[in-house]
Design a protein around this nucleic acid. Structure first.
Lengths: 92, 92
DNA sequence: CGCTATCATCGTATTTCGACGAACAACGAC
DNA sequence: GTCGTTGTTCGTCGAAATACGATGATAGCG
């Protein structure tokens, strides 16, 4: 099948979104713009190390970007990834 | 947050879609219409009992419907659930 | 330099997922 | 009733996910 690899990639993205905390992270970044890790974590019901893991999962799924900024870390949504997601879902 | 419960529900749906086999099931039902369990299973790289489990997960997530039809079981997409999913994703 | 702040990563315990084969249930044909 | 077909559920086991605290790494302040 032509789209087997694409499906694999999309399944990865969906799996990353398939957790309340991670869904909330994406919504925070999407609704309120890029943020520092601490500002995100402060709004989540988990400790910092756990939040960091969730951010890593979203990053590895390609859904968010990160950049170092002094001792802080700046996170933002990957707009292109979200566009791809929307395009895929629209076909359902 | 107003949409905490909604997010929980959407995370469930995303988690259900977060597996290649289940994504493929949804695509089969969506692209080719409702099907018997056996016809679906035959196109998946897993044995029948595993396919049945995946169908159950999708059903419990509300993404597909099922109906008994003699010794067969008939599966179809839940159009409303997909509409909800699309509406949610569109807001990203 | 030492000190604080900010995050990430490591180590670990618990839970959940995902796969299979075996056993079970429901239906139709006979 | 007994088969044969279809599909689900059960039992099990290894792999992965999820949470936490502890430790490590880096940047800026003094």
């Amino acid at each position: 099948m032509v789209n087997r690899r694409k499906d694999e990639h999309m399944a990865n993205a969906f799996r990353a979104l398939g957790h309340p905390v991670r869904l909330r992270i994406v919504r925070i970044l999407n609704d309120e713009g890029a943020s520092f890790a601490g500002d995100i974590t402060r709004r989540l019901p988990v400790v910092a190390s756990t939040a960091s893991q969730h951010l890593k999962i979203l990053r590895e799924a390609g859904l968010i970007n990160d950049a170092a900024d002094g001792p802080h870390r700046y996170y933002s949504v990957n707009k292109q990834a979200l566009l791809d997601l929307k395009a895929w879902v629209r076909k359902l």
